[in-house]
Structure formats: structure tokens, C-alpha cells
Amino acid sequence: MEFNSAIEGKNILKKYKNFTLDIGELKIPQGFATALIGENGAGKTTLLDILAGTNLEYKGELTFFGKYDDKDREKNPDVKNNIGYTGTGDYFFPRWTLKQVEELQELLFDGFDKNRYRELLKELAIVSGKAFEDSKKISNLSDGNKIKLMLAGVLARDTKLLLLDEPASPLDPLMRDKLCNMLRDYLAENEGEKTVVFSTHNITDMESITDYVIIVEQGRIVEQGFVEDLKEKYIVVKGEKKDESFASRIISNLSSSSYGFEGICLSEDLDKLSGLDIAVERPTLSQISVHVMKQYSALAMVDNREKTA
């Protein structure tokens, strides 16, 4: 499927002592929600930090909104003003109060709408309108409320791109559903112009909002594509115990029980299983992600080494 890119990247290289992020080619489709998926330490946060400009120590080329490069991002206020980023760790200093956070965001971002921000704080149940709530400290907020505060900040701005690092992790299921609705509404404004990129481990909860997926493992992109295309590319296969050993030659990471087996393989490999008594199903995004992650993750490699030994 052809698409315009909100962000394009080439040969992005970031080296740490024990980890290297090495992305040959990156294309984030404009007008869609892209999920960055991968195990802990796969490089999702590093990639988002590089895209947001909060980590400038990397090599490679980046293009934003089809016309700005990463030098423009640092020199032209329009680029960063159009990118809303929420990160992990100390996004706001823990001793700041809600009042200070509001004033800070007015200073930091040109398109910050204070009234919209206050509405969002109420909508997200961070404040209820009682007295002295402005003096509540960040350190006294729960992890979920800290995320909601960051989201209120970025959604109260006039942006074209949201980069959200693990927005769903500390949220309760109800709030995750609300987050999906809010992101859907965000994408619907000026249809086709706004883009969301988020990293997540809560694949099932966030599937309803996900249009495009990038799976990162050990610093590399190992799979990417539109969700619907990936659901065509992979297929869930279930079969009886007697066929398990044959099926395991085609299906990697097959899970076995006393009744039979289940696994995912490429749809194009389905012909190789002809003759077996199998049932097939359309996979969920979570099943595809786990399948891909099992193939490339550091954890799977340790497991495989242990099995071989």
C-alpha cells in the first residue's frame, strides 16, 4: 500500500556499550496510528527518543513531514511544535506542582491551549475541580496519572505527530479504552494529516487503534506493515497430535498440548501442510507479534541455546 510518510529514516545508528540500534530504513505512514512493538530493551524507547529529538547522539538521516531534516528540527520551532512527545522517567520534575507544569508547557510549546488542557485534566480525572488541586505535586501522582498528565499536555497542543512511549502500560483497562478513543479522535481531526506513533506491550488493548506495526527486536526492525496485510501474511494453524512432528518442520515455535498443536506460519507455507488434518484461523495482532518476537528476541535465543544444550 502506497502512503506518505510522516517520518522517514535511513541508516539510523545509535551505539551503547552493550546495545546497538541499527535501523536501515524507517517509514512511518502519515495519517495512521503506528505501534512499536518489541520485548523489553529491544530499542523502542531509544528510537522514539531519537525521533523526538531528546537524544541527539546518533547517526543517520531523518525527514519529518516530507520536508524537514533533523537539523531543521533543532533550528526551526515549527518542527518540534508539531511533534507531541511523552516519555518515560522524569518527564516533569517530581517536585513541580500541577500549576507549575501548566505554566511550563505554556512557555515550552507555541500551540499550547490552556483551556483545552484544563478540560482534558478534568476529562482524564486528574483533577476534579476541588480547591488546592493546582498545588498537587507530580511526585504524589500515580504512574497512571503521570501518563494522563503528559497526554493532556500533548493533546492540548496543535500538533501533527504524537510520539508516545508506553502510554498504555500504567493505565487501567477503562482508561486504555479511553486512550484509544482519544487517539482515534486525534487522527480524525484534519483527516489524513495527523499521525500517532506509540510503543506498547499491551498489544491486545491497543489493537483497535493500531493501523501499522513495526516490530523491533535487538535494535533492528524485524517486521513491519499494515495490520490487515500482516493478518493476510500470517495464519494460525491448529492440528492433531499425530501431525505435530511433521508440522513442526514448517511451523516454528509450535505450542503443544496433550490434544494437539497450535502455531503460526506464513500463509504462503500453508500448502506445505496439505494432507494434514488442520484448522486455520486469522491471527490477532498479539499472536503475530508474539510469533515474530519469539523468532528474533534475545529471550528466545537464550531458550533455544538451553534447548540445544
Binding site: 531528546t54 518540534k80 508547557q105 512557555l107 515550552l108
Partner: peptide, 17 residues
């Protein structure tokens, strides 16, 4: 190093503030 304020760093005006 442990206290990196993300809000400042993702803003064009972060250094100025």
C-alpha cells in the same frame, strides 16, 4: 544524568527555559 526532564528536551525552547 538521572534527572532528565523530557518536557524540556522535546521542546524547541527547552534550552532557553
Amino acid at each position: 544524568r538521572s534527572r532528565k526532564c523530557g518536557a524540556l528536551r522535546c521542546s524547541y525552547y527547552g534550552e532557553k527555559v
